[in-house]
Each structure stands twice: as structure tokens, then as C-alpha cells.
């Protein structure tokens, strides 16, 4: 019974991932989902190298690598919802007896895995191109940190995308969200440099803490403060996920009342 549920969970994940990227050409997937984000990382690392005349640009590699997950946690999850809407399967999902939340998490699961792989690709790029060193770094903790970061970013993605469903051009809201994270998460310049109000926003966004933690881990610094930050990030993720899920249900209900699931 439990085995069946788990099996169904993975099948759902894989199918929805395939449904999304199977539509796309494999080449398009590689270019859009991997090469372009890596180029963005290279660009900001080079910029940092020039601007700060820095030899060690590890912080930029770390920050921008973590940001790579937004390709999945915002765009991937957004397209899952968008796809359901376009192909008219959203109403099937609404009407299905299964627990919608589980179904939804199932659908996002592959994106979380894919996002982690992308972060790792980013780190490897940093190692190869910019000589980032992982000697003496606590890799399991770094891995845990990445997982939490991706989780929190997924929650954020869910919230953004469920709001986006009401807007006709979801690309707009997804891109804006990703750009905001690029600017405010502290990946490219310290959050403290931002005006006060923007700093506040930074700390309610996902990734800001994770990037801070990752940089400490890379320095070999490891204090109980980091655990506290990790817990906070996890908490942020849970909050976003909950609001996102409630939002999705609200949207669905509204759409059902207005009998507009198809245009919804």
C-alpha cells in the first residue's frame, strides 16, 4: 500500500517532468535550462573579478550557483501550472479525488532534483573556470544547505506561480521574480549595501540566508548561528509553500465559481 503510494508519487513526478520538457526539444532544454544560466553565472563572476579586482571570486560563484535553481523552482514549477492550464488538465487535477497537495508536490519533485543538479553544475563550473577550491569544505552540510535553499525557493516559486495563473503572461511575473532574487539575494553584492527597505525584502526572500550560509561553509566557518539560519530558511520555505498552496486552492475555487477553469 505504502509502496504503491510511493510508486505513484515517483511516476507522477517523472511524467510531469517529461510532459514539460518532452514538449521542448532536448537541445532547447540544454540551451535554456543549462547553458544560458551558466553564462549568466560566468558573466557576473567576470564582472566581480573586474570590479573588485578580486582573485578569489568564490562568493560570486556560490551565490550565482545557488541562483541557478530558479530555473526550476520558479520557471519549472510555473510551467507545470501553466501547462496544466494550457492543456486543460487543470480541471482534471481539481476534480481528481487524490490529495491535490501531494499530487502537486509530486509534480514538483523532479524539479527539485533537477535544481540541485544545476546548482552542482554551477559549482563545478566555478571550480573549472575560476579555480574555486572545495578543500576542507564540509560537503554534506553544503549539500544540506543546497537542499534547503532549493526547497525554500520552490515554495516561493509556487506562491509566485499560483498568483501568476491569474495573469495572462506568466513569463512576466516569473522573470520579474527571478530578477529580483538576482538583485536582492546578496549573490552579487552584499545585502547591507541596499537601502533599508530593500534589505528587509531581501530577508523575507528565499536564498538570501542560504547564500550567506554557503559562503561561511566555503570559508570553513561553522557555528551554531548557521544552523539557526538554516532553520529560518526552512521556515521561510514552509511559509511560502503553505501560502502558495492556499493561493492555488483559492484560485481554483474562484475559477470554478466563475466557471472559467479553461480561461483561468
Amino acid at each position: 500500500m505504502l509502496f504503491d503510494i510511493i510508486k505513484r508519487f515517483f511516476r507522477q513526478s517523472l511524467l510531469s517532468f517529461k510532459a514539460l520538457f518532452g514538449e521542448l526539444d532536448f537541445k532547447v532544454y540544454v540551451f535554456v535550462q543549462i547553458i544560458d544560466p551558466i553564462l549568466q553565472l560566468i558573466f557576473f563572476c567576470l564582472l566581480a573579478k573586474y570590479v573588485y579586482k578580486a582573485d578569489n571570486i568564490t562568493p560570486w560563484v556560490i551565490g550565482n550557483s545557488l541562483l541557478l535553481c530558479t530555473k526550476n523552482t520558479i520557471f519549472g514549477i510555473g510551467f507545470v501550472l501553466w501547462g496544466e492550464r494550457i492543456f486543460g488538465t487543470l480541471k482534471l487535477l481539481v476534480a481528481a479525488p487524490a490529495n491535490k497537495f501531494l499530487v502537486f508536490v509530486g509534480r514538483s519533485f523532479m524539479h527539485i532534483i533537477d535544481a540541485m543538479i544545476k546548482v552542482i553544475i554551477g559549482l563545478v563550473t566555478g571550480y573549472l573556470l575560476f579555480g574555486v577550491s572545495f578543500a576542507g569544505v564540509n560537503l554534506p552540510i553544503l549539500g544540506l544547505n543546497i537542499l534547503i535553499a532549493v526547497f525554500a525557493a520552490s515554495g516561493f516559486g509556487l506562491l509566485i506561480c499560483s498568483m501568476g495563473l491569474r495573469i495572462r503572461d506568466m513569463n512576466l511575473i516569473m522573470n520579474t521574480a527571478a530578477t529580483l532574487l538576482l538583485a536582492l539575494s546578496g549573490a552579487n553584492f552584499p545585502v547591507e549595501k541596499l537601502p533599508n527597505i530593500l534589505q528587509k525584502i531581501s530577508y523575507i526572500l528565499p536564498l538570501t540566508r542560504s547564500i550567506e550560509i554557503a559562503n561561511s561553509i566555503m570559508h570553513g566557518v561553522f557555528t551554531s548561528n548557521l544552523y539557526r539560519l538554516m532553520l529560518q530558511e526552512l521556515f521561510i520555505g514552509v511559509i511560502y509553500l503553505s501560502i502558495g498552496y492556499l493561493m492555488l486552492q483559492y484560485m481554483e475555487n474562484k475559477a470554478r465559481k466563475a466557471a472559467s477553469l479553461d480561461i483561468f
Partner: peptide
């Protein structure tokens, strides 16, 4: 079309 998506940064 795939090319279009990554011609920006280079």
C-alpha cells in the same frame, strides 16, 4: 530558436 535563448550573455 535554441540559439536565440543563449546569444545574450556571450
Amino acid at each position: 530558436v535554441a540559439l536565440k535563448n543563449c546569444i545574450g550573455y556571450p
